[in-house]
Amino acid sequence: MNKLLQNYSKEIKMIMAKYPEGQERAAVMPLIYLAQRNDNHVTKDELADIAEITGMSTTEVASIVGFYTLFYDEQEGKYRIQVCNDLPCALRGADEFLDELCENVGIKVGETTEDGLITIEGVKCLAGCHNAPMFQLQSPMGIEYHEKQTLETALELIKELRKMEGKNE
């Protein structure tokens, strides 16, 4: 049984309606986003589900997941804090911000906290260069921009995320 189709039948119908007949494969990227919604990565079963819906092979879908940086086939942190440290942001202190943030959280750049909640990594330009230091927060709710950040505001956000998760558990 196709679980993805079962769980998101309405959304999938809307996605498929965007593309002309015979072009079902165009729905692959939106479907991967849908599959990632829960836990920030695509499972093997979900790959197979997407392949079935769009009439592609599982390997083909997996290669799409591999090509794009916002698709993940492994679960890392439930929340990903992606700090831009590309050239324009780096000219405004983004590298130092990223290092300090990681140091304060007790991980290295690219690592995940022990509780599995937060991954912090450096990414390429996010079109927010005038508001550096800045990052995007990738979470089950989607992607959210946080601009004009300081170490304090970023640590505050992490505290809130932890509090929220504590309550949910």
């Binding site: 072009q23 494969r25 165009a26 692959v28 990227m29 939106p30 991967i32 986003y33 769009t54 592609m56 799409i64 090509f67 794009y68 940086t69 916002l70 698709f71 390429k124």
Partner: peptide, 20 residues
């Protein structure tokens, strides 16, 4: 929505990306 690839801003890569 794209998914994080600068090359998809190049117009023909963009088309390929929509067509998956």
């Amino acid at each position: 929505l794209g998914a994080g690839a600068y090359i998809c801003g190049e117009e023909t890569a963009l088309l390929e990306s929509i067509e998956v």
